[in-house]
Design a protein around this nucleic acid. Structure first.
Lengths: 224, 224
DNA sequence: GTCTATACTACGATAGAC
DNA sequence: GTCTATCGTAGTATAGAC
């Protein structure tokens, strides 16, 4: 616990360096709780206990429950953003010039997203976002701007190359359908597991589902 | 301690006839609250106030907050079930015999579902189910058995006719993808509205999205 | 910066009048 | 059956010691 630093902006800038920093431990415990129980259902007492600190640390670092929630949103946006950033950067660095390479880039983006939807470690991030989408607050704006907008707009742009005959609205709708095919794997996970006749989704089933999403998406991305 | 007799459904048989019956008014207010704020976030005080009765009526009719929640799940299942029942009955009464009519039936089922996802009056039902799927409880079992299983299994059966070359697992995955295309319209509504560049989804945009789902699904349901 | 202790509010449950 | 009144608990926020 370093104590010689200035008191303005308490340790905010060091959050990325030290995994055991209190404010980061609080955020990680909080995301877990918010994802499980929602904003109202999560309790700051429980979050403090789970992160091994006092409840008043939350007030100190984040100003209160609301501030903690927004900090969680930023953290979630950063984490999810990091998953997609390499691919997005690569696409921006080498923009596809023909329909087939645009399709390839789009499918890579989608597969990346689908794999994230099925990854167990992404469960709490996904649940956090899903809850936020049901009743969007300021937190949604942050996540949308940081993660969703870049992915969606990149995808729409790629689709303009892959399926030039579609008009803009139809392209945007098609991007949403493709994302929906991946999204359902997380949102309706309980349904997916039952439909696939598995107790929970094992790695083989996950691979099969991802391959299936890819196949279906590829079909939709071809000019008919 | 409350006796278990509180659960033997007083006046339940009149629920369908009298819209102003207290227990029904409570359930409708409760679904609204549970959908908005989740189980933990909803307060029985607020539900009682919104339904114009005393808090203790909830104890009397449902045994407590938990019992009220389960009653809401049953009500939601009944309402959503009613939306799909006519189509399911029709399909069962006249089972399609060839691939093309199976496709037609499947598309009708999907369009019905997509339209429900976009209907404003279904918002609270959808939100209730979405929340429940994130962390399934007994309530999910009831909704799944009453609504989801019949729709999903009917769809899988139809797809066996529409795309006989696929194996069972691939067919089940494909059904989930198609539902995902419709589901995303509700789950990620905030994203959908932004992507379609609308403040909220107006009727014209909704029709366009539904037509697009139908078109994409039709493509996926054709033998390649 | 982190802790303990406490103030204050809102919750769900319940008892008892009618 | 529905109401009012009240109990005990758990919530957030805050003050102040160290």
């Amino acid at each position: 616990m370093p104590s010689v630093t200035a008191t303005d902006r308490p340790a905010q800038d060091r959050a990325g360096q030290d995994g055991s920093l209190v404010s980061l431990r609080i955020i990680e415990a909080a995301i877990q709780q918010f994802a499980c129980a929602g904003f109202a259902g999560a309790s700051t007492r429980e979050i403090a206990r789970a992160s091994g600190t006092a409840m008043s640390s939350i007030t100190y670092h984040f100003g209160g429950k609301e501030g903690l929630y927004l900090a969680c949103a930023d953290h979630v946006a950063e984490q999810i953003g990091a998953v997609h950033a390499p691919l997005l950067d690569q696409i921006r660095a080498h923009p596809p010039a023909d329909a087939e390479s645009a399709r390839t880039a789009l499918l890579a983006l989608l597969e990346n997203f689908a794999r994230f939807m099925l990854a167990p470690q992404s469960e709490r991030f996904s649940q956090f976002v899903v809850r936020e989408q049901q009743r969007p607050t300021e937190a949604f704006e942050r996540i949308y701007a940081r993660v969703m907008a870049p992915v969606l707009e990149t995808a729409v742009g790629l689709l303009a190359l892959a399926r030039p005959s579609l008009d803009e609205q139809a392209r945007r709708a098609l991007v949403l359908h493709c994302l929906g095919m991946a999204l359902v794997l997380r949102i309706a996970r309980a349904c997916v597991a039952r439909t696939m006749e598995a107790e929970d989704i094992d790695p083989e089933t996950a691979d099969m589902l991802i391959a299936s999403v890819r196949r279906s998406a590829r079909t939709l991305l071809m000019e008919s």
